[in-house]
Computed example of a mutant assay.
Amino acid sequence: MAGDAVQGAVPGAEGGLLNGITALARMVRLFGHVMRGLVLIKLQFGGMTQAQRHVAVQAWSLRLFAMIGMQLTVHGEPAAEPALIAANHISWLDIACVHAALPRARFVSKSDVAHWPMIGTLAYGVGTLFIERERKRDALRVVHQVAEALRDGDTVAVFPEGTTGPGPTMLPMHANLLQAAISVGAPVQPVVLRYREPGLGFSVAAQYIGDTTLIQSIWRIASARGLAVEVHFLPLLPTAGMDRRALAEQLREQIQQRLDT
């Protein structure tokens, strides 16, 4: 009996070791990929047209998923016209998910991200707008910036929840940034992000919540097997004459309805 127990434990131990080696290799490749992104932004972006930058951003995002063994599936069509993209928020990977399908999107992100090593430089390089959510005056400043960007023909993406959630259920939405679309008459496109892994309708490995650090989150994702993400672009919502709180509730209902299916 004791011999049987020892023999049964060995394959599991080897499996755990192999999984750890795979995760470590993925993290090394990911680090190299981030470094290549920094070189791209620092040395090449300045000589590129806007269209060339979008191609580079999309290619970098798609390559990222290949390196960590994640499958990406896109449903629906991203807006062809300037629009405010409003998505649910689960992981630091969310921006790459949207950029893989809609590389021209400029994101609004919390100011903390600007100070993250390497990631902050990447975010700044692709035109991210940073907001200090704790300061109401700063929110007003960013609303004006987003409105100006939409007026100039840009597509801007926001996470109205303001922070990451577990995935199955939407957190309450903050309506402030939606005012930017209303003020210039730009449509809003709801986008639903859903991470899955084998046996789970909603991935646990992809969650970036609570006290989880960025390094811990990267390791969990690198260690996951069969991780996949779906990006759903829902129909555009007109904003003419809308109240931002009513618009936020409409967005939340539509995104939650898709998450429930």
Score class of each variant (00 low, 15 high):
171 L>F: 05
141 R>D: 11
63 R>P: 04
45 F>L: 03
45 F>K: 02
213 T>W: 08
215 I>R: 13
61 S>T: 07
157 A>V: 05
54 H>R: 11
188 V>I: 02
205 A>C: 08
163 T>H: 13
94 D>I: 05
124 Y>V: 07
23 A>Y: 04
250 Q>A: 15
139 A>C: 11
152 D>H: 10
63 R>F: 01
180 A>M: 04
112 D>W: 03
259 L>T: 06
239 T>W: 09
84 L>G: 03
2 A>I: 12
29 R>G: 06
251 L>V: 10
230 E>H: 09
176 N>G: 07
6 V>Y: 08
234 L>E: 11
5 A>H: 12
162 G>W: 04
132 E>T: 09
244 R>V: 07
121 T>M: 13
148 E>R: 15
78 P>N: 04
69 G>V: 05
199 G>P: 05
135 R>K: 15
27 M>C: 13
100 A>T: 03
115 H>C: 07
32 G>R: 11
253 E>K: 11
7 Q>H: 10
145 Q>R: 15
110 K>H: 11
26 R>T: 09
218 I>C: 10
54 H>D: 14
159 F>R: 01
250 Q>W: 00
51 A>L: 11
123 A>S: 15
65 F>N: 04
74 V>L: 05
53 R>M: 12
251 L>G: 07
112 D>M: 08
248 A>D: 08
29 R>E: 09
178 L>Y: 03
203 S>L: 07
152 D>E: 14
229 V>P: 10
141 R>W: 07
53 R>S: 02
34 V>M: 14
61 S>R: 06
3 G>K: 13
185 G>S: 06
208 Y>P: 03
134 E>V: 12
18 L>C: 01
241 G>V: 13
109 S>W: 01
234 L>A: 08
53 R>C: 10
111 S>T: 12
112 D>T: 13
92 W>G: 01
106 R>N: 08
29 R>A: 15
181 A>N: 05
180 A>R: 06
139 A>N: 09
133 R>W: 10
3 G>C: 09
234 L>H: 04
95 I>E: 00
20 G>Q: 13
111 S>V: 15
54 H>G: 02
